[in-house]
Design a protein around this nucleic acid. Structure first.
Length: 381
DNA sequence: AAATCGGGGCG
DNA sequence: CGCCCAGATTT
């Protein structure tokens, strides 16, 4: 290390002890609770996590409570938080801990890395914050703070850049309380060394910050461009009969795995598509055909007058790597009681549920919005 | 190394 | 509207 970067660890920890926010997971030393918080905080803002964290720990106070819960319960408590595989992995890992290790958490980095959903960051975070070990935890905050302090102009995710940052971090960790070292950098990144318009005037490291000296703090860190988002057209059906609504569960793997939605079909949207509603209606028709065929009623339906579809709601939703335009349609002129009678058996992953019970299931945000909108309109009528 | 995987807040 | 957030996992 060319300059005296070693001593900045002390300055940062001193600053942290005087300026740290009062956060729920900073009021506990419980390894389980801190592990839950770190999992929820992956790619998710502190303010978003707080209510989820409190509810989750209230529902599952210890790792044994989580291990014996059902996956539906766990998903329901994660509803709206996103990246739902985190919830499944957390649940799975809790079972691992209880069944294979008698409820005792690992005490080494390699042990933690064996748990589902625990990667390099989370292992280091739990070990340093909850277990007092000098293990580095490198997240987006750390990369940003360090890239500015050292004025690193290469892409910050570059392997040897991360290696360099890790070395400095390891040094700091051996000279202070590990929990405070880890949290001090993240805290600085969260409230001072922010992604845009960093507050260098408030920074305890301003004196030694190379980026500040060179006037490029706001331009760092350098990141590589991401791929463009795909646009998808999604058609969903409102199928209601005798107070029952047809809903379907998404496949366990992949996008929104295991979550519930209105029966839906999607296709990639090409730019030359023109008007969206006609395309959405065609998509909805093919979904209706599939449902009718699946209910073994093809003959009877084909005899009855051709049903037509009425659009009742539309909603756009943006994910990290794709974009949905959801159109909800309701069939008119279809003998739904025939479909209902047959599909009581259960068609693939679809079930009829009382309309008022819809909120007992875990819905993706976009479908939750649609359901709330449609049901509130109904109450007003 | 690049893609996949949510949702929301902020400039 | 684009960017980013206490990342992990798969390809």
């Amino acid at each position: 290390m060319d300059e005296n970067f070693q001593e900045y660890g002390h300055k940062l920890v001193t600053w942290y002890r005087q300026n740290r926010r009062d956060l729920p997971w900073r009021r506990t030393c419980d390894v389980y609770a801190i592990w839950v918080s770190e999992t929820m905080l992956q790619q998710t803002r502190v303010e978003t996590v707080i209510p989820y964290y409190l509810r989750f720990l209230s529902a599952f106070p210890g790792v044994a409570d989580l291990a014996k819960a059902s996956e539906e319960q766990v998903l329901k408590h994660w509803q709206g938080l996103g990246y739902y595989r985190r919830a499944k992995n957390l649940h799975l890992a809790a079972k691992q801990v209880c069944q294979e290790w008698g409820g005792d958490f690992p005490k080494t980095r390699d042990g933690w890395l064996q748990l589902a959903g625990v990667g390099d960051y989370t292992a280091g975070a739990v070990l340093s914050i909850a277990m007092g070990q000098p293990e580095p935890a490198i997240d987006g905050n750390v990369l940003r703070v360090m890239s500015r302090l050292l004025c690193i102009r290469e892409p910050v995710r570059n392997t040897n850049v991360v290696r360099r940052i890790r070395k400095l971090l390891e040094y700091w960790l051996t000279n202070d309380v590990p929990s405070d070292v880890t949290q001090s950098i993240m805290e600085l990144g969260a409230i001072v060394c922010t992604p845009r318009s960093p507050q260098c005037l408030l920074c305890p490291l301003a004196e030694g910050c190379r980026a500040k000296r060179e006037g490029c703090a706001a331009e760092l860190p350098v990141k590589v461009a991401k791929a463009a988002r795909k646009k998808m057209l999604v058609s969903a059906l409102w199928l209601e009969h005798a107070g029952q609504l047809l809903i379907e569960q998404r496949p366990e793997e992949g996008l929104l795995g295991g979550m519930w939605q209105l029966p839906s079909l999607s296709e990639e949207r090409t730019e030359d598509g023109g008007s969206e509603l006609p395309s959405a209606l065609r998509l909805a028709e093919s979904l209706m055909e599939r449902l009718v065929a699946g209910s073994l009623l093809a003959d009877e339906i084909s005899e009855s007058p051709q049903p037509y579809l009425v659009p009742v709601a539309t909603e756009k939703h943006v994910f990290t790597h794709l974009e949905w335009e959801v159109h909800v349609c309701r069939p008119v002129g279809l003998a739904l009681e025939k479909l209902f009678g047959q599909s009581q058996k259960r068609m693939e992953l679809m079930i009829w549920v009382p309309v008022e019970d819809w909120d007992k299931y875990a819905w993706p945000r976009v479908y939750e919005k649609i359901l709330e909108k449609l049901l509130s309109e109904r109450v007003n009528i």
